[in-house]
Design a protein around this nucleic acid. Structure first.
Lengths: 217, 217
DNA sequence: GTCAATGTAGCACGACCGTTCGTGCTGCCA
DNA sequence: TGGCAGCACGAACGGTCGTGCTACATTGAC
C-alpha cells in the first residue's frame, strides 16, 4: 500500500505525518463534494490553512495525492462499514449488518458528499490509469465481501437454496448504490429508512425497529 | 422545457439550430467522460472544430449550456430507453423491457461514458442549483416510471401480491445503477448479461436467450 | 549543541478556465 | 433586393490550475 522508492531514504518527521494525515482526511471530504478530479491543490490548501507548496511537499504530484486519498477513503470505509459488519455473527445477520453499516455511514454524514467510492467509481471509470485501478480494486473487494457473506448465509441455509451469491451480491450492491444516489440527490434520510426496509424484505428477515435505540437522529 | 426569456425575442436561424444540436450531442458525450462540471467550453469547441466564442453565441453561460445538455441527454434517454419500454405490452413485460432497454443502451455505447444521468446525479448531488434540480427531476421521473410499470404488473397479478411498487422500483433502479457502475468500471459486457439475468430472476420470469437474435455483438 | 534533513512559505511559470469584446459574414424576411 | 439579426471568429481579460524553485524555520539524531 504505502510503498516508497527505496532509493530515496525518506524518513518523515512526526509532525509531517500528522499534517499528511490531516491533509488526506480533508482531501477525502472535499473529493466527495468536488470529485476526485475536481479536487484541486489550491482549494485543499485553502481549506487546511496552509500553502499550496507546503501541501505539495507531501505529494510529488496530483496523482500521488489522489492515490493516497483513495487509500485514506478505503481506511475510513473499512472502519465505518466493513468492521461493524465483521463484528456481526456470520451468515444472514452479517449480510444485513453490512448494508445497515453502509446506511448508517451515510446517515452519520462522515463525508459531506455521500459515499466516496460510489462517486469515484463513476468519475474515474472513464479515465484509465492507476487511480481508476485502485478505485476498482476497492469496489471489487467490497462486492466480494458481500458475496462471501451471502455464500456463508447460504451454507447455513438461512436463505432459499435457489439464491445465488453472485446475483445477491449484485442486487445488494445495487440497493446500496441506489440509496447513496437518492440520498445525495434529495438529502432525505427517509431514503435510508426505505433502503433498510428493502434489504430486509429482500432477504426475508423481520423489519427492524427503525426508531428504537438508534442515536443517529 | 426550452423556455426562453420572453423579453428577448430570439429568433434562431436554421443553420444555427443545427449547430446548436451538434454542440449538444457532443456535450452529452463529453459530459459522460469528463463530467458535467468537468465539461469545458474550450474542450467542447475543440472537439467540434469551432471557436470558443462561436460556441458561446448559442449559450449565454456555462450553466445554460449545462441545462441544455441535461435536456438533450434526457431526449436521448427517452428515445433509447423509455420509448422502447413503452412499446412493450403493459405489465410485467414492460418492467423487464425497461431494464433491458437500459442495458442495451449501455451495450450499444451510444455515450462513451455510460449512463449520463447516473454520473450526473452523483456529481451534481453535492452542488445545489438549477442543474442539480433538473437532473433530479429526470431521475425522479424515471424511478416513477418504473414504479408505474410495477404497479401495473401488480394490478394484473403478474407479481406476488406481497410486492410493493416503491420497493421494487428502488431495487430495479439499484440493479440499473450497479450495472452502469460495473460496466463503466470494468468495461465488460458480461456485467450486462449478469444484470439481465438478475432482473429476470428477481421478477420470476424465464431467463432470456441472450445469444439469439440480438445484433448488439 | 551542532547540523543535516525535513517541513513550510513565497513566488513564478505556462496552460487552461469561463467570459467579454469588436468585427466581419450570411441566411432570412420585408 | 436591402437590411438586419443571428452566427462565427480572433483576441484578450482576470482567475485558477498543477508544478517547479528558492529560502527560511523546525526538528531529531549524534
Amino acid at each position: 500500500m504505502d510503498d516508497e522508492a527505496p532509493g530515496l531514504p525518506r524518513r518523515p518527521r512526526a509532525d509531517g505525518q500528522r499534517t499528511r494525515q490531516l491533509i488526506l482526511r480533508e482531501a477525502v471530504s472535499l473529493a466527495t463534494v468536488d470529485g476526485l478530479e475536481g479536487l484541486s491543490i489550491g482549494n485543499l490548501a485553502k481549506a487546511l490553512g496552509i500553502s499550496k507548496s507546503g501541501l505539495y511537499a507531501h505529494f510529488g504530484s496530483k496523482q500521488e495525492l489522489q492515490l493516497a486519498t483513495v487509500d485514506e477513503a478505503g481506511r475510513i470505509f473499512q472502519a465505518e462499514v466493513v468492521e461493524p459488519a465483521l463484528a456481526a455473527p456470520a451468515g444472514l445477520a452479517q449480510l444485513v449488518a453490512v448494508c445497515d453499516a453502509f446506511f448508517d455511514h451515510l446517515q452519520r454524514r462522515t463525508l459531506p458528499g455521500g459515499c466516496f467510492f460510489a462517486g469515484a467509481a463513476l468519475e474515474m471509470g472513464t479515465r484509465p490509469g492507476p487511480v481508476k485501478e485502485r478505485v476498482a480494486g476497492f469496489q471489487g473487494a467490497f462486492v466480494g465481501l458481500i458475496r462471501q457473506f451471502a455464500a456463508a448465509a447460504l451454507r447455513q441455509q438461512q436463505l432459499p437454496a435457489a439464491e445465488d451469491p453472485d446475483f445477491l451480491a449484485f442486487e445488494l450492491n445495487g440497493i446500496i448504490l441506489a440509496a447513496d444516489t437518492n440520498f445525495v440527490l434529495h438529502d432525505d434520510t427517509g431514503v435510508l429508512d426505505l433502503a433498510r426496509q428493502v434489504v430486509r424484505r429482500r432477504l426475508g428477515v423481520a423489519p427492524a425497529q427503525l426508531d428504537a435505540g438508534d442515536d443517529l437522529r
